[in-house]
Design a protein around this nucleic acid. Structure first.
Lengths: 232, 232
DNA sequence: GTATCATTCAAACGGTCGTTTGAAACGAGC
DNA sequence: GCTCGTTTCAAACGACCGTTTGAATGATAC
């Protein structure tokens, strides 16, 4: 290996990343020791420090491996819709689909660890640890402004502040939808098969759109008759 | 103190609970050491084991102190609405208000640690640790079935399975709304003052109701003209 | 075969964890 | 004043943590 970085023994690196990803979902970052990770991966304890530099760096690489692609895919989806629209504002459902549909479809791809990773990602939005928060903020810095702008244009009658809040609410609903297998068992006793991520997307997207376009609090709650356009 | 349990030195106990609650929000369970807790509380390290029996027992007591009351309050709110309705099905917004409005108003009560606790609770729905999950399941066992039944009656046209999913989605949106100050900063850069929990409730409730009553996935998306009643 | 590199390995490092211990301090009842 | 049960305290326990080390192993090029 004459290259300065990367392309080190691919087998060991990948096995560590896979084991860490799965264990982080199961037990969280703090509770997952390096001995547990290397044990499951079948590699030596020192391999993590050798290949990644430390536990924090490993955590970041676990995310980077999939999150970078995920966010690029989101932007590609948004680009595609905007090209179609030829300068006209996008429809809310297109924006929601670009941002939330991509990870949901990623979660459906169980073969490539998509489901496991999306559960981890959902957990991590509430992660207290400072460096993880900083890392997420950096990874999303390029994506969020684009989607904010698109939503502002798509919903010109809704105050921008309100849109940001609803964006936040949608993030929460999606995170739980993916991560919260455990929380789900609070409401349903093994009745729902949460294993089918395609069905999950079919259920979640209408909910998100319904929330996004709900009448504003200030508006008359009794106004059951629709204004000419736009539910918001 | 001749009593077998309880009513031990109230000062030390409460100070430990307060310190633990705040620190759990800041750093999570695993990362919060007993030395950190007792240090902030200004009590001896051994006090936790003496008064609570161990770290796990402390965690459970931190929740029990507020969660039991919260769930009772939810049931009281539901009882009140059902008494008013005299046997008729409740309206969705009443059920949503009883379940989600109570914790939101609790979060507004910053003086009594409501805000801190609700942030902790939101975090904990995704908590990996097994004993915490079990504990939450026990605490919610008495509450969830009542609300499920109420929702089934209120939305007879919506398949029960779909209602459970949307209940789950609402849980996620609320949890993030309260817990996710940090996640919120992903979408807005210090623009939103998330300190006002009353405003939060005013924003969240319409979102939840909009999601709950959104058109089902199967139904024609183009059916912009309303059916005679009920958006769902 | 030998030199050179990247990688693996067993062992140990200092530190922090949750918990336990036994003695000291306190307070109410007599 | 003495006793007894409760609470506090400093100190220590063994276990596990993330990280480091230096030697062993493997592969490649000459």
């Amino acid at each position: 290996m004459s290259l300065t970085e990367a392309k080190q023994n691919p087998d060991t690196r990948e096995r560590i990343l896979d084991a860490a990803e799965a264990l982080f979902v199961e037990h969280g970052f703090e509770a997952t020791s390096m001995r547990l990770i290397t044990g499951r991966a079948g590699v030596n304890l020192a391999a993590i420090n050798y290949h990644f530099g430390g536990k924090e760096a490993l955590i970041q690489d676990v995310f980077r491996r999939r999150l970078t692609w995920l966010n690029e895919e989101r932007l590609r989806a948004l680009d595609r819709f905007e090209k179609e629209a030829k300068g006209a504002p996008l429809k809310p459902h297109q924006i929601v689909d670009a941002f939330f549909g991509v990870p949901l479809r990623m979660a459906a791809d169980t073969a490539h660890g998509g489901h496991t990773f999306m559960r981890l990602l959902g957990r991590t939005y509430t992660e207290p640890s400072a460096f993880v928060r900083q890392f997420l903020a950096d990874e999303y810095a390029a994506v969020v402004p684009r989607f904010k702008q698109a939503l502002f244009r798509a919903l010109p009658d809704v105050p921008p502040e309100e849109i940001l809040w609803r964006f936040h609410f949608m993030l929460g609903a999606m995170s739980y939808a993916i991560a919260g297998t455990d929380a789900l068992q609070l409401v349903a006793e093994h009745e729902l098969d949460e294993k089918d991520p395609e069905a999950l997307a079919r259920r979640l997207m209408p909910f998100l759109l319904g929330g996004l376009r709900a009448p504003l609090a200030g508006q008359a709650a009794k106004a059951k008759e629709k204004p000419p356009r736009k539910a918001a």
